[in-house]
Computed example of a mutant assay.
Amino acid sequence: MNMKKVAVIGCGSIGQRHLRNVKNLFSEAVVCAIRSGSGNTSCPAAADRLIPLRELDSSFELAIVASPANFHVAHAKHCLNLNIPTLIEKPLAQDYTQGLHFVDSLNSSNKKLAAVAYCLRYLPSAQFMKQLIKQKQLGQIYNVNAEVGQYLPDWRPGTDYSQSVSARSDLAGGALNELSHELDYINWLFGVDEVLSASLRRSQELNTNVEEIVDTQIKLKNGAIGTVHLDFLQKRPHRKCTIIAEKARVEWDLIANSITQFTANGVTTLFDDCEYDKNHMYLNMINDFIAQKQNTASLNEGLEVLRIIQHIRERAQNV
Rank of each mutant, 00 (worst) to 15 (best):
R201Y: 13
Q234A: 10
Q150D: 15
K235Q: 15
H229Q: 03
L220H: 07
L196F: 11
W188F: 11
D193A: 06
R236N: 10
N143W: 04
K221N: 12
I244G: 06
R239D: 08
V250C: 03
I213V: 15
Q131F: 04
S169P: 11
Y185F: 03
P237G: 04
D215L: 10
R168V: 01
V192Y: 10
R249M: 13
K247I: 09
K130M: 08
Q163S: 04
I243R: 05
L138V: 10
D193N: 15
E194H: 12
Q163P: 11
G173K: 04
N209L: 02
S162T: 06
A172F: 02
D193W: 00
A126G: 10
N145S: 14
S166N: 12
I186S: 00
R168M: 05
S199Y: 10
Q234Y: 15
T208Y: 10
L220N: 03
G173F: 04
I225V: 12
G223N: 11
P157V: 06
L206F: 04
Q204D: 15
I244A: 04
R239E: 02
Y142C: 01
E212T: 10
Q140V: 15
A172S: 14
I244R: 00
S169V: 12
E246D: 15
T208C: 02
L200I: 11
A248V: 09
I141Y: 13
K235L: 13
V250R: 11
I243S: 06
G149F: 04
V228T: 11
T216Y: 00
Q135S: 14
T208P: 01
G149R: 08
N145L: 07
N222G: 13
V148P: 00
L176A: 02
D154I: 01
R239S: 09
P157I: 01
A172M: 08
S166H: 12
E182N: 07
N209C: 11
V250K: 08
Q127C: 15
T159Q: 02
V144H: 05
Q137E: 09
T208L: 00
Q204F: 08
V250P: 01
T242D: 06
Y151S: 01
A248G: 09
L206P: 07
N209T: 10
F232G: 02
M129E: 04
G149I: 06
D154A: 06
Y142Q: 14
D160M: 07
L183Y: 12
Q217I: 08
Q137T: 13
T242S: 06
V214C: 13
R202Y: 14
L183V: 06
N222L: 06
L152P: 09
L171R: 03
T208S: 05
I244K: 00
K240T: 15
L189G: 03
E178M: 06
F128H: 07
T242G: 03
L179H: 12
K247D: 15
K247C: 15
F232A: 03
V250N: 02
A146P: 15
E178D: 03
A175N: 05
L189F: 13
L196I: 13
Y151E: 08
K240R: 15
S203M: 12
E211F: 02
V210I: 08
I225N: 00
F128P: 05
A198W: 01
I243H: 02
A248D: 09
Q217G: 09
V210Q: 08
I133D: 11
V228N: 03
I186W: 07
T227A: 01
P237R: 09
D154Y: 07
R201F: 14
